[in-house]
Amino acid sequence: MRTITYLQAVREAMEEEMERDEKVFVIGLDVGTGLTFGVTTGMIDKFGKERVIDTPIAELSVAGVATGAALNGLRPVMEVMLQDFITLCMEQITNQASKARLMTGGQLKAPVVFRAPGGWFGSFAAQHSQSLEAWFAHIPGLKVIAPSTPAEAKALLKAAIRDDNPVAFFEHKKLFGRTGEVSEYGEDYVIEIGKADIKREGTDVSIITYSNMIWEAMDAAEELAKEGISCEVLDLRTISPMDREAICETVKKTGKVVVAEEGVETGGVGAEVTAIIADEVYAYLDAPVKRVACPMIPIPFNPDLERFVVPNKDNIIDAVREVING
């Protein structure tokens, strides 16, 4: 075992896949230098400009370029500088990449990955801090991934690159510096897309969440354990297709649920999890499901106000107490 950062994990996944398969390449803004967060820094020295392709600032068209290259057999990984800017790519992701398979009766496939770091980062303000995963979970034909650890980031990105379908891969800016152990099995180390993971076993309450919110949930579980409340933390890892089975299993086990996410509550990922529970395991619930999410407000710049709206461990603790105490 070796310890690396989440950022290194993302880079290693791309590098190993590029070494394994010549069809894999990276395309996006400033990927040559990797100036944004440093994810792609140095890759151009290994793979050259032909496979680490800098583009003009034209996100919509670049998303289409990546998709078009995928339609003709390549396996592009597009880096979108920030998740906020992926809004510019929506047309190509929603109407082209995700529909190419069905619309052509299976003649075409679009094995393209759109990587986009999201989440709050500390006063980056309203247009640089969003978590829009739920938008993408609403698109049939697209897979959506948001891992929380370096090992999973690496293994899931490799799986995404090898997948024959378009995948939206969402990192969290605050996770880039997080360290963790990764397997050194090399190129075969992939995690199946669509499988959730229990990050902490527990018996009283299930906290279902993903991405950076996992760590808020883990801290909350740790604190609550001191009070004798045993929390199970389920990491969705894949937002779409969602692991309904794992969700139902943990609900059957604890009968009480808090669903947490950094994105806004209305129409959010938590809303979908809650609906799955209502559909499939309602009878196992001992209390109403409680959602923890960002209120319907753009993220404010002021650091105190930002901290006030972005959900954290304390909000999760409050929610757990609420489902326990009724």
Binding site: F25, G64, V65, T67, L71, Q92
Partner: peptide, 26 residues
């Protein structure tokens, strides 16, 4: 024929990508 399109203009980026794939990496 890699496809027609119901969204005005959207074939163009796809075509740039397909053309890129013809010259990609030698």
């Amino acid at each position: 024929v890699l496809g027609a399109n119901g969204v005005v203009g959207s074939g163009m980026p796809l075509a740039v990508g397909a053309a890129l794939s013809l010259v990609y990496n030698g």
